[in-house]
């Protein structure tokens, strides 16, 4: 049986740092497949200290960086900027700027297309990007609120186009809730439910709003009226609905 050291021996001296490099090394025939397996199963969570700066840098360089990972990176940078290591703190500060710039550029690119396209999808994309920015800056309340306000203003400016209860009105409600405008959100929610009383997403948003206002009976009332999902299109609302309406919340 070959030992670990033999398995991870590199004949050419090439030491891969990432999974992708190990896979490339294997396909070029200069590394054993075990190298790739070893790196693939030994992933260091980015929140874990000591921080793997190389891994963070690699994630940051991804052109298709998703919002979840970006938000997590911001959490890491939020801690890193307080580090006593000045170099690390500087890296974090620069990364925060780079991340913000990247997402703002996405918004700008989307907004440029709006003059020639009067449809709803690109407008929804703009709102989604503003919400992502607000989420990235959730630990910087001033900036977070600023981007939420931008999303809200953009929705109001385009409200004649953004009229879908699932894709637009429910999202607007969530923005208002994130902005903690509970009174206005309640008003919008009531009006929307009067018009679309059977809409699941609006009903769930109303339950969320009641929860945020700590009105527990209202939460249950809304979830009891939520009904079941359309056949063949299950959604993610089942779990909270079951918890609140099947008695588990009273245990």
């Amino acid at each position: 049986m070959r030992d670990f050291r033999t398995l991870l021996h590199s004949k050419t001296g090439f030491i891969p740092k990432t999974e992708a490099q190990a896979l490339r090394g294997y396909s070029e025939g200069i590394l054993s497949p075990e190298y790739y397996i070893y790196l693939a199963v030994n992933i260091h969570p980015i929140l874990e200290e000591p921080w793997d700066v190389r891994e963070i840098d690699r994630l940051l360089a991804k052109s298709d960086l998703d919002a979840d990972t970006a938000a997590l990176l911001m959490t890491v940078f939020g801690r890193m900027v307080k580090s006593k290591d000045k170099e690390l703190a500087l890296f974090a500060a620069e990364s925060v700027n780079a991340l913000e710039r990247r997402f703002v550029e996405r918004v700008q690119a989307l907004r440029k297309k709006l003059d020639s396209d009067r449809s709803a999808p690109p407008r929804r994309a703009v709102i989604a990007e503003y919400r992502t920015l607000a989420r990235l800056f959730s630990s910087f309340p001033v900036l977070g609120s600023f981007y939420l306000d931008e999303a809200r203003r953009f929705f109001v400016d385009n409200r004649r186009i953004l009229v879908d209860p699932d894709l637009d009105i429910a999202v607007y409600l969530e923005i208002l809730m994130d902005r903690r405008e509970f009174e206005l959100a309640a008003k919008v929610s009531r009006a929307a439910l009067d018009r679309w009383p059977e809409n699941r997403r609006l009903r769930l948003a109303a339950a969320k709003l009641a929860f945020a206002r700590k009105r527990i009976r209202e939460v249950i009332g809304n979830l009891e009226r939520l009904g079941g999902p359309a056949a063949g299109s299950p959604d993610s609302f089942d779990e909270p609905q079951l918890f609140w309406t099947r008695g588990a919340c009273r245990e």
Partner: peptide, 14 residues
């Protein structure tokens, strides 16, 4: 999967 592991927030190690 890689993303899910690297962005794991509630792991035992953390």
């Amino acid at each position: 999967l890689e993303g899910r592991v690297s962005s794991q927030k509630d792991s035992i190690t953390i």
